[in-house]
Simulated assay, not measured.
Amino acid sequence: MPPSSSLAARSGGHVTDTFAMLGRRQEIALVLSIFALIAFFSFTSEYFFTVRNLTNVLGQGSLVMIAGIGVAIVFISGEVDISVGSLQAAVAIPLIEVMNATGSLWLGLAAALLLGLIVGGINGYLSAYVGINSLIVTLGMLFILRGGVYLYTGKTAIPDDIYLESFFIIGNERFLGVVPWPAIIALVLLLIFMYVMSYRPFGRKVYAVGGNAEVARLAGFPVKRVKFICFVISGVMATISGILLASRLGSAVHLAGIGFEFQVVAAVVLGGVSLSGGIGSLLGMALGVLILAFMSNGLGMLDLPTEWQLVITGIIIIIAVAFDEMKRRRAG
C-alpha cells in the first residue's frame, strides 16, 4: 500500500475509532428516550400504543429519514444542505408531468431523479469546487426551487391524471397490510448507507474529510470530489422523499416541503450528527427522526396546540446543538 493510502486509511480509521464509544453512548441514550416517550404516551393516550398508530408514525417519519440520510452525510463531510424541502416539491413536477404525458411511471421517476441529480450536482460543484459557503449555496437553491415551483404551477396543484396504481401503491399501501411501503424503503436505504458509511472506503473518506479537510487532503483524499458526491447523494435522497410525498398527495403541490428542511436538520442534529463535521452516525439520525415523530404524534393525541409542539421541538434542537458544542470542545 502506498504511504499516502496507508496514512489515509489510518486517518479515516482514527476518526471512526475516536468517536465510536461516544457515539454508542449517545445512541443508547436516544433509544432509552424513545422507550420513555412510548411509555409516557401509552399511559396518557389509549390509542397511542396500537399497531396502527405506531406503524403510522413510522410512515410519517420515513420521508424525514430518507432525506435525513443525505443531509446527515453532507453534515458529516463538514458541509450543510438546507435545500431539501424545496427540492422535495420541485421533483414532483417532472414526475407528474412526464407520467401524465407518457403514461409511464418509470419515465416519471427518471425525470424526477434527473432533476435531483442536477440540483445535488450544482450544490456540490458550487460548494466543493468553487468554494462558496454551502449554507449560502443551498439557501439560494431553496429560494430558486421554491420560486420556480410557484412560477410553474401558478400556485395550483398539478394532479396525477392517469391514476397509475403502481404510483399510488409506493406512497400509500402497506407491506403485508401492516407496515407502510415508505417505511420499508426508508429502512432499506438506511441499512445500505449505514453499511457504506461504516465499512466502505467512501464512508471513511467522508468522516476524514469532515473531521479535518486539510489533513485529509495531505493524506491523499480527494476532498472536493468526496464533498461533491455527498451533495449528489443528498439530492437523490430528497428526490426519493419527494416522489413518495407526491404519491401520497396524488399530485405535485406547490406547498409541499415547506419547513421540511428544518424537520430534517432537527432530526439530524438531535441524532448526534455534529454541525462541525466528522462526527455522527446514520443510526443516530434515524433515532432522532423516531424521537421527533413519536413526540409529534403523542403531543397531537394529547390535543396540544401545534404552536406548543413547535416550541418544544425548538427547545430540543437548541439543547441538541448545545450538547454537540460541548462534545466538540471536549474532543478538541
Rank of each mutant, 00 (worst) to 15 (best):
V64G: 12
D17E: 08
Q26C: 01
G78W: 07
Q60F: 04
F48I: 07
A36Y: 11
S33K: 02
A72E: 11
V15N: 15
I28K: 11
S33Y: 00
L32T: 03
G78E: 07
V31A: 08
G70N: 07
R52S: 15
A29P: 05
A9I: 06
D81I: 12
G70P: 03
I34W: 12
I28P: 12
D81K: 13
A20P: 05
G78P: 13
V15R: 10
S11Y: 10
I82G: 10
F19S: 13
T16V: 14
V80M: 14
A8N: 06
L58M: 15
D17S: 13
L63P: 03
V15E: 14
S45D: 02
S77N: 08
F49W: 00
A29K: 12
V15A: 15
R24E: 10
L58T: 00
F19T: 08
I28L: 14
L30Q: 04
I76F: 08
L58S: 01
R52L: 02
A72M: 05
R52N: 15
T44H: 07
L58N: 09
M65W: 05
I82V: 08
T44W: 11
T44Q: 14
A39H: 03
A67I: 06
L30K: 03
F49K: 00
Y47S: 15
V51E: 10
L32H: 07
F48S: 01
R24Y: 07
R52P: 06
E27N: 04
T44M: 10
A72F: 01
I38A: 02
I82N: 11
T44P: 02
F41S: 04
S33H: 01
L37W: 06
G70M: 15
A36D: 03
F48L: 00
G12P: 05
N56M: 00
V74D: 02
I82K: 15
F35G: 07
F49G: 00
E27V: 06
L54S: 02
A72I: 01
I82A: 07
H14L: 15
G68N: 08
F75A: 15
S11Q: 12
V51K: 05
S33C: 13
T16F: 06
E46F: 04
T50C: 00
I76V: 14
R25G: 15
A20D: 03
F75Y: 14
S77E: 06
T16G: 06
I76P: 09
N53E: 00
A72N: 13
L54Y: 00
S62T: 05
S77V: 01
I76W: 03
A39F: 15
Q60H: 09
T55S: 02
A67F: 13
G23P: 00
I34E: 10
A36C: 14
I34V: 11
A67Q: 08
F19V: 09
I38L: 08
F49V: 03
